[in-house]
């Protein structure tokens, strides 16, 4: 029962195991500066995986989430330039970025939940559409944002690093959401949509909201990537679609919907990041790096599943 209510416990165990392995090959791992720089590498995937979790929880999937990241990335970088680059312009561009992300997610939601199109095919299609839009807005990687954008992102705010603020707020948001009716409804819809509908839950609305939520998280990840790269790149987000799904599965969320949660995805995404570190610091020959990485991901999945079954 404990594990049923807290599917992230197994993911946490796997994360801790991998951290030990990481520590063995990188003794300086727990220095604050190192942890912080690791966190800024992992943060975008953590956020995307959290967002994707809501869609998967209600039994759907979003294959366009990487394209949404690219779209928000190039839009915000272009808008900052168009608005003149002042502080007001930055804020306005950030708001527009969220609007674009949430809007793109809601479009997915309407197609899938209201028009009842098949989620895999639909979001595959909208993904091509969003990626095409991103290419039309910025055909070539480039554009720059003011230096203070990435300096702020990499620096502290009120004594706490900005990336830690972003992570903490995202986690608090997810926990708070889990305690509302909405959080329960998402699980109920994914567990058995028909039963949820028959008991009077607004199934369509819940699914659309979940897609919108995923779009919002993707927008936040895109903003973090701007903080990290200080540039626009229409191909930036592509790999996040499958990585986010790997992360949430590692985090204990069932692809069939109904069980799991965004906190598990946090650990799943961290695990993927830690695995990259282990590969890096173990000094493996470069020909074997991808192979060993695949083996460790599979092993982590197996361990997580075995722990969860007990």
């Amino acid at each position: 029962m404990i594990l049923y209510r807290r599917p992230w416990v197994a993911a946490l165990a796997v994360t801790l195991l991998l951290l030990l392995a990481n520590l063995a090959v990188q003794p300086s791992l727990f220095k604050p500066a190192i942890m912080l720089s690791n966190l800024s590498s992992w943060l975008p995937l953590i956020l995307v995986a959290m967002g994707q979790t809501y869609v998967v929880l209600s039994g759907d999937i979003d294959l366009s989430i990487g394209a949404i990241i690219s779209l928000v990335n190039v839009s915000v970088v272009s808008l900052i330039g168009a608005f003149g680059g002042g502080d007001g312009a930055l804020l306005l561009a950030i708001v527009c970025g969220f609007a674009i992300g949430i809007g793109a997610g809601a479009i997915n939601g309407v197609f899938v939940a209201a028009l009842r199109l098949q989620p895999i095919v639909t979001t595959f299609g909208t993904g091509i559409l969003f990626a095409g839009l991103a290419l039309a807005i910025m055909p070539d990687a480039g554009g720059t944002v003011p230096d203070r954008v990435f300096e702020t992102y990499a620096g502290p705010l009120l004594g706490v690093p900005v990336i830690l603020w972003i992570l903490s707020l995202a986690v608090l948001f997810v926990i708070a959401l889990g305690r509302t009716r909405f959080g329960l409804r998402a699980l109920a819809v994914g567990g058995d949509a028909q039963a949820a509908f028959q008991t009077g839950l607004p199934v369509t609305r819940v699914r659309i909201l979940n897609y919108g939520l995923a779009g919002g998280f993707a927008a936040l990840a895109a903003l973090c990537l701007i903080g990290e790269t200080a540039t626009g790149d229409p191909l930036l987000g592509g790999s996040y679609t499958l990585s986010s799904i790997s992360a949430l599965v590692l985090g204990g969320t069932a692809l069939s919907g109904g069980t799991g949660g965004a906190i598990g995805s946090l650990f799943g995404a961290m695990s993927l990041g830690i695995i990259n570190n282990v590969i890096f610091f173990a000094r493996l020959p470069f020909e074997l790096q991808s192979l060993i990485q695949g083996i460790i991901v599979l092993a982590a999945l197996a361990v997580g599943t075995l722990v969860a079954r007990r």
Binding site: N38, S41, L236, S239, F280, P285, Q289, Q293
Partner: peptide, 17 residues
């Protein structure tokens, strides 16, 4: 040596490491 097909963020992680 770090060699893999990665996105920009993945290659930034190489540099960071």
């Amino acid at each position: 040596v770090q060699s893999a097909t990665v996105d920009v963020q993945g290659q930034i992680a190489h540099v960071r490491n």
